[in-house]
Design a protein around this nucleic acid. Structure first.
Length: 391
DNA sequence: CCACCTTTGAAGGGC
DNA sequence: GCCCTTCAAAGGTGG
């Protein structure tokens, strides 16, 4: 349920701007009804913005005076985009999302030399496909949003760079090409062969874009990817490249699968790890992923809990159209995820934390039993032989 | 080392 | 259909 507010007069003429996707379409009427109250709520919430945010967020969309022109431009472009979508043949598997207007999965694959300064991020050995380790969702790079975060030609990229041969802005129906694998792909993707999406750096409060810190090249669940349509049952691509949504069942993917640890592995690490297919990101998660770095830059915050609070408020402050972008992206994410893992259920990952906890407890209790047994064994020379029932 | 925090949304199950 | 629970991302923090 999108929680929309602060339409700021964008209700006018907004109906034909809305993307007609199943869930959000139903929500539209409710949104209209609740627009005022939710806007008030958002204003109320905005007033609660913490000091660090207030001091740096003079450009926040609360006032919206300067944003209306931007919004108008966006709407025009968005209309063009929607018209383009209408021209696109619909997928055959419409049954997955009954009323889906999904018109393909536009992806952008860029060679890694598009990484700024040619530097590889620490996580650059991960294949960035559905979600990129730079907070820039790969889908967003293709959707013609005029929003600054979707700027197709960010200042740090020279025009000729963004127009280089092989840099395809639109591959809406070319899923296989999106998943095209590096030749001779093997189990590990070295930085030189990593799939780097086009980095779009956040616009700082100072008005310039600055690169994400290396710590922000995150351990995205989709940061590694393979063409799962030709994936083996283990979740591994025949080439050995793992799927981004597939991570080892234990621990963070950042270190588990690709780090070669010379030190002696623990017993747990030696156990075969069952790959875990992670949930597709919802609209807010996609928004967070994109905007996190910006908030960090503006507010000089690092704690995710605090950042997420800010992002939550900003999410509510977004216009309906702005949120619609992310709902659309999320819907496409879900659709792709569904295509890739038709038998996957969100339930599959349920209880992971509890299971880990339980496993740990079992390990410890087992260890206690073993140590107790060891003590008993040591002392067994003098101990009486117990009947089986006692044991 | 790992749970927790914090956010929203999706999904699944129970009633 | 409603309600509840869990998980998805992120990274600092504390046990």
């Amino acid at each position: 349920m999108p929680q929309l507010n602060s339409g700021g007069g964008d209700d006018l003429g907004a109906n034909d701007e809305m993307i007609a996707f199943k869930d959000e379409g139903e929500q539209d009427e409710k949104i209209q009804e609740n627009a005022f109250t939710e806007r008030d709520l958002a204003d109320l919430k905005s007033s609660l913005v913490n000091e660090s945010e207030i001091s740096q967020n003079s450009h926040q969309p609360v006032g919206r005076s300067g944003q209306q022109e931007e919004q108008r431009v966006y709407e025009e472009k968005h209309r063009e985009h929607l018209e383009h979508l209408d021209d696109v043949p619909k997928p055959q598997d419409a049954g997955m999302y009954k009323t889906s207007t999904f018109s393909g999965y536009p992806f952008l694959m860029l060679p890694d030399h598009f990484h700024p300064n040619g530097q590889m991020s620490p996580s650059a050995n991960k294949v960035a496909v559905v979600q990129q380790p730079h907070g820039m969702h790969p889908l967003t790079s293709l959707l013609p949003y005029s929003n600054e975060h979707f700027n197709p030609n960010p200042p740090h990229l020279t025009p000729d760079m963004s127009q280089k041969p092989g840099v395809h802005r639109h591959q809406p129906h070319d899923l296989p090409s999106f998943y095209s694998l590096p030749s001779g792909g093997v189990g590990q993707i070295t930085p030189s062969m990593g799939w780097q999406g086009q980095p779009v750096y956040p616009l700082s409060s100072c008005g310039f874009r600055q690169p994400y810190s290396s710590s922000l090249t995150s351990n995205s669940s989709y940061s590694r990817f393979s063409h799962s349509l030709i994936m083996g049952p283990s979740g591994m691509h025949p080439t050995g490249i793992p799927h981004p949504a597939i991570v080892p069942s234990s621990g963070r993917q950042e270190h588990d699968q690709f780090d070669i640890k010379p030190h002696t592995e623990s017993k747990r690490e030696r156990e075969p790890k069952k790959p875990v297919i992670k949930k597709p990101l919802n609209a807010f998660m996609l928004y967070m992923k994109e905007m996190r770095a910006k908030v960090i830059a503006e507010c000089t915050l690092k704690e995710s809990a605090a950042i997420n609070q800010i992002l939550g408020r900003r999410w509510h402050a977004l216009t309906r159209e702005e949120q619609a972008k992310y709902y659309e992206l999320a819907r496409k994410e879900r659709q792709l995820h569904m295509q890739l893992y038709p038998s996957w259920s969100a339930r599959d990952n349920y209880g992971k934390k509890k299971r880990r906890k339980r496993d740990k407890q079992q390990d410890s209790t087992l260890g206690e039993k073993r140590s107790a047994f060891a003590i008993f064994k040591e002392d067994s020379t003098s101990a009486p032989i117990l009947p089986m029932e006692v044991l």
